Computed example of a mutant assay.
Amino acid sequence: MPSDVAPFRIAIVAGVSVGRWTKAWKERRPETPLEVIPIPESEQRSVLTEGIADVSFVRLPIDRDDLSVIRLYSEVPVVVVPKEHPIALFDSVTEADLAGEILRTEDPADAVEVVAAGVGVLRVPHSVARQYARKDVEAIPVSDAPETEIAIAWPTESTSPDVEYFVGIVRGRKASSSRGEAPTAPPPPTNQTTAKRPPQRGAKKPQGGGPAAAGRKRGARGSR
């Protein structure tokens, strides 16, 4: 039977997985249904100010006026390239290696399609590249690019018991904790990119030049 209780609405930008937190909510607050709303990054503030979502997982920076914002974790930046692109041979590349490449700026889902067809490359957080992963592209870490950050945000004036409860879950509050207790810092989601960069293998320059000559060659792919 449908519930007469209004759902608690959670907006998420691409790359964010909220399964562990929504599962905890359903176990602890089964009387209040959840609605998860995927949104483009361009709408991460408007979904809150227009009342479309109660909370939103956003990618910083965001205009914080009238919002409460709690930073959660960092993401490693990557470049998505076609599988046969010279950059795909490397464990990591630098900003300089990308000079002269055509950077795609479309929605990631569309941009990956274009990149796979051999037109340009895409710069995105690792979690976004993972969400749109396919067999004909590779995601290579950009070692000297700044990391991006994921946060949870909500309108300060709309802070409700439900908002406080969900934020507490995200920040690590146990089911036995009272609502007023200070939650512990959240452990990084197991299926998200954390602040640690992936280990890099020893540097090997490819024979000759190429757009990624300053990068780190992927040993596992060097035999192609």
Rank of each mutant, 00 (worst) to 15 (best):
A6K: 13
I12W: 02
V13Y: 03
A14F: 01
R20M: 07
K23D: 15
A24V: 14
K26G: 13
E27V: 14
P30A: 12
E31C: 04
V36Y: 05
V36D: 05
I37V: 13
I37W: 04
P38T: 09
I39C: 01
S42P: 02
E43F: 06
T49F: 07
I52T: 12
V58I: 14
L60G: 10
P61A: 11
D63G: 07
D65Y: 15
L67I: 12
S68E: 15
V69T: 15
R71W: 12
L72Q: 10
L72I: 10
Y73V: 06
P77T: 08
P77H: 06
V78G: 03
V80D: 00
V80C: 00
V80E: 00
P82C: 06
S92L: 02
E95W: 00
A99G: 05
E101N: 01
I102G: 08
V112E: 04
A116I: 05
G118L: 14
V119D: 08
V124S: 03
A133Y: 01
R134G: 05
K135M: 05
V137I: 05
I140W: 00
V142S: 00
A145M: 04
E147C: 08
T148W: 13
T148P: 11
I150H: 07
T156H: 13
T159G: 03
P161I: 02
D162W: 01
K174W: 09
G180W: 14
P183E: 12
A185H: 15
A185W: 14
P186A: 08
T190E: 13
Q192L: 12
A195N: 11
R197A: 15
A203N: 09
G209R: 09
G210N: 03
P211F: 01
A213C: 02
R218V: 04
G219S: 07
G219D: 08
A220V: 08
G222M: 06
S223Q: 11
R224T: 14
